[in-house]
Design a binder for these strands. Structure first.
Lengths: 208, 208
DNA sequence: GGGCGTATCAGCCAAATGGCTGAGAGACCA
DNA sequence: TGGTCTCTCAGCCATTTGGCTGATACGCCC
């Protein structure tokens, strides 16, 4: 039985070496290379074709994890990509899965969970940490929460801190209409005040 | 020459083992224990009195890093505390330094920088990563914008989306006082509404 | 043609928020 | 001792926001 070859991608040296040490305890998992950037990851994946790529999403300047996953898919490499990141923002999860990630793990996952995810990934099984899965599930289960294009537009201005009057001016609609849209947005987000809407919107979407 | 004893505190196993491996390459640095929570950290610090405590700020549920630092100071332990974290938010830096941290390192710091910080810490030298230092410098240059501890506390709840009444209840103060604090916060942040305050706070501080 | 979703607007009223002034208590420092 | 900072609270008033009901118009689909 050949060991599973793994490429680690993370811009933090300590995370790479920690993960490497952790995976080193498993005889059937073999870390063959490490990359500190998306660019390096692509080159190494091409060159070594590891079975699994374990990738952080946030990677400082340059190509981010999502973009790296997309590129990997394009250069029709057949390795499975596992996202291994600190935060479970809704937008990141959706984007990563969309880009072709096989799994989504949080950095505080138990070691066994990480091993299982890697073994599962090579067999085409998709694995995600419990909190991640529940978030994704909620998104799918609750189509009510999908904002209309206009609402999304308004929300994106709302989180800039604009008042109703300013929102109306910016979108060429009356304040009354602004209030209507806001009421719908609040209902969909499950909040009651604009402050809470801003807070949850930024957190849910990873917006900045 | 006795080696410098170090206690690692981070809720992520991979970070701990990576850092341990990294520090293990230095003969004069000796990792004597690891803790995954603030509570554990306090107990271990008491028991082992390491020379330096290297601590992450974000640590899941329970006591956060800042609180752990404060407690460490209180139980008049003489170990130097080095903050070792992913993000360089303004508020975190100020709060950590305020709580008594000797240094503030980012996780993507170079290994040499980390070693130097630990060696410096035992000699009472405070070390921080370049981006952190520049932020702190800006804060000092602009004393108007420094929030008082109470204001920072209020702000951190504000960005959760709480109303004035809820803020008052949570902090055991009247709504009138909440409004006073808010007015000061708005002035310091240069905004006029709570929505804008939330938006700029989250953007400026990288809060989540 | 009749629904359905989306976007637009109005008016009314209660509640929340923000701006203002003023003030007392405690801590810290020169 | 006096000055400064911080935290606390009060009252007043204008503005903003949120909840409600109801309405028109456009496009899409069956």
């Amino acid at each position: 039985m050949k060991p599973i070859t793994v490429l680690l991608v993370d811009d933090h040296l300590v995370v790479r070496s920690g993960l490497k040490a952790l995976l080193g305890t498993q005889p059937d998992i073999d870390v063959v290379a490490e990359a500190a950037s998306g660019e390096d990851a692509l080159a190494l994946a091409e060159q070594l074709s590891p079975a699994v790529v374990v990738m952080d999403l946030a990677m400082g300047p340059g190509m981010d994890g999502i973009e790296a996953i997309k590129q990997l898919r394009r250069q029709n490499a057949r390795q499975a990509v596992l996202v291994f990141t600190t935060y479970d923002s809704d937008a990141d999860i959706v984007r990563a899965v969309d880009a072709g990630a096989m799994g989504y793990l949080l950095k505080d996952a138990a070691p066994e969970e990480i091993f299982a995810a890697i073994r599962g990934a090579v067999q085409g099984k998709s694995v995600m940490s419990a909190p991640v899965a529940s978030r994704l599930f909620q998104q799918l289960r609750n189509p009510d929460e999908i904002l209309t294009p206009r609402e999304a537009e308004l929300l994106s201005l709302l989180i800039e801190g604009l008042s109703n009057r300013e929102l109306g001016r910016r979108l060429f609609i009356s304040e009354a209409t602004v209030k209507t849209h806001l009421a719908h947005i609040y209902a969909k987000l499950g909040v009651e005040t604009r402050a809470a809407a801003i807070a949850t919107a930024i957190r849910r979407e990873g917006m900045r």
